[in-house]
């Protein structure tokens, strides 16, 4: 995929070129949104809103990392969506990673055949998601970018618009909180990942 050519074409009004970019980044954008918001339907709405906003703002993209630029817009769309949802009743976080395939339940991109394995994996994912949701918003975004999606400090600073030094110190505090939170779920964790001796 020639990203630069697609961006240029999209800036000229080629919706199909933009859609090629959407298809490339939608999994990343949706997963970031899902972990920021903690609810599949709301994450999908925020992702869609983010892609629409990014399309309208394409003329303001002046080069650099398109991924960071796009994720900044999607992240802002997530904050907007969370504010909207706060004014309305929302479904429980438990609905995100359950085994039934009802609407609003997230499905993993790759999943094994062993039902027991699937169940354990989903519980672990739910535990991680719950701990992420307990973080303040600004720490949550950094944890998702750094440790879930593997962004560099520079990329995180680019997406969040905060200074590199702040990213480092905030990530350190965030990981400490996450470690303490995940301790509570240690019976769900694989033995090699248990944080304290049982």
């Amino acid at each position: 995929m020639d990203e630069e050519a697609l961006i240029r074409a999209a800036q000229q009004g080629d919706v199909n070129a933009y859609n090629a970019l959407v298809l490339h980044y939608q999994s990343l954008a949706f997963n970031v949104a899902l972990r920021i918001i903690g609810e599949a339907d709301a994450a999908a709405d925020a992702t869609q809103e983010g892609f629409i906003s990014a399309y309208h703002a394409l003329d303001r993209f002046r080069g650099g990392s398109f991924k960071s630029w796009l994720l900044r817009i999607v992240t802002n769309a997530c904050y907007d969506e969370m504010r909207r949802r706060k004014r309305r009743p929302q479904s429980s976080l438990d609905a995100v990673f359950t085994q039934d395939d009802s609407a609003g339940t997230a499905q993993f991109a790759t999943e094994g055949d062993d039902p027991e394995e699937i169940a354990e994996s989903r519980e672990l994912q739910q535990a991680i998601l719950n701990c992420l949701q307990e973080l303040p918003e600004e720490q949550r975004v950094i944890a998702i970018m750094a440790d879930v999606e593997g962004f560099s400090y520079e990329e995180i600073a680019d997406v969040t618009g905060i200074a590199l030094g702040t990213v480092k110190s905030r990530l350190s505090r965030t990981r400490r909180r996450l470690r303490d939170c995940l301790q509570a779920y240690r019976e769900l964790l694989p033995s090699s990942y248990r944080l304290a001796d049982d």
Binding site: V22, L23, F30, F51, Q107, T110, D147, L178
Partner: peptide, 16 residues
């Protein structure tokens, strides 16, 4: 542990 977070399949395409 955090890096064990799995990607979730998108519920739909977000194309315009």
């Amino acid at each position: 542990l955090l890096r064990m977070s799995e990607r979730v399949a998108v519920p739909r395409n977000f194309t315009l």
